[in-house]
Design a protein around this nucleic acid. Structure first.
Lengths: 200, 200
DNA sequence: CAGAAACCGTGACACTTGTCATGGTTCTAC
DNA sequence: GTAGAACCATGACAAGTGTCACGGTTTCTG
């Protein structure tokens, strides 16, 4: 019997997935959580074989919770996501996450993935893997990413400069460089492109 | 027995919800679909008592599918959403949608909502209703909304002007006016605020 | 250890965005 | 029928963005 915990911040989805997985004769959902912190606490308490975590989940994201769980519990983590961004896949695998599946996966396939992962194997959805491998690696420097990340929150160059403790001219240089690398017309467009790729 | 169809573009979620709802003794999920067009076709074929549609679903959104279904089938529609934007609620109710629930709803509550709606009652989640009523109505004119909507796709004023067949100066005036009404520092910020409110 | 890349900054300049005033036409509401 | 709002446009100007050249310092890699 594979003992499992499941975390998703949407109660309807969480309830539905718990019900569905409990129908599998060899899978037992021992607990479920609505946020990352509760998931970590429940993983520590129940020591499950597998943890299924939604990627978009407070307080930060599913990778954060996965990190905490993997660091302190001998379990395996599967991340489930709606928008599979290649850069996020790389961060997940770097954190020794064992499975990465999109929400477009059929339920019976998720069950098979759970069994494979419980048996010690790794699983990355082939479509996600293909686009991650085909996709360019991030061409932006660490500071260019910082500037774009901040650009998503702040309205103007002045505010971004203050947040990052840089001169406005420096911020403009980084913005311009990032825009050129991503072939974007505005810094908002560049930030959106970096977000879509999972780089920020 | 309440006959039901369910549509959600994420197969895992759709499978889980179908399984969960079929556990209710008085609910029978007769069909399910992965997009709006299929949902419309299945509603016409099965003439269900209730249709549950995810709001974020291709080709346009769940409201589009709801509209089509309500126009041609004597059924009742419940929309399920992850990000409940007040303006979207108003558009949904304007299209005679009978139920509007967020994905944070517990499953047993969704079952009760289905029964109420099947019995001819309407249901709007109280939290969503409260924020929709408390929230300001849209202060923007139709053309200001057009400009912001286009601003989400286009990088610059020139392109927006071409798309809407307006002079660039006119677009700048609408942008400026919208920014003032929404207290935004850039047109991108204004567009994001309008999107968050469900006005575009 | 040397060279390259990244980080950081300044300054000049071109281009774009945003503000504001002004005014004509059309539509809507009282 | 009239007044007000919305739509549309032009022009002038200020503010902000983005480009580019240049250069110093620090970090990284071979």
């Amino acid at each position: 019997m594979i003992r499992l915990i499941l975390a998703d911040d949407e109660e309807l989805i969480r309830g539905a997935l718990v019900t569905l997985l409990n129908l599998e004769p060899d899978i037992d959902v021992v607990a479920s959580a609505g946020n990352g912190d509760d998931a970590v606490a429940l993983a520590r308490k129940h020591q499950p074989d597998v943890c299924i975590l939604d990627l978009e989940m407070p307080p930060t994201d599913g990778i954060y919770a996965a990190e905490q769980i993997i660091r302190s519990v001998p379990t395996r983590v599967i991340l489930v996501t709606r928008h599979a961004r290649p850069g996020v896949l790389r961060r997940a695998l770097a954190n020794r996450v064992s499975g990465f599946v999109p929400k477009s996966t059929p339920a019976d396939k998720l069950a098979r993935v759970i069994r494979d992962v419980a048996a010690g194997r790794r699983y990355v959805d082939p479509d996600i893997a293909a686009s991650a491998l085909a996709g360019e690696s991030c061409p932006l420097t660490s500071r260019e990413l910082d500037v774009l990340r901040e650009s998503r929150k702040s309205a103007n160059i002045q505010t971004i400069a203050k947040s990052l403790q840089l001169a406005p001219g420096t911020v403009r240089n980084y913005v311009s460089s990032a825009m050129t690398k991503l072939d974007a017309g505005t810094r908002q467009e560049a930030a959106a492109a970096a977000w879509d790729q999972g780089w920020i």
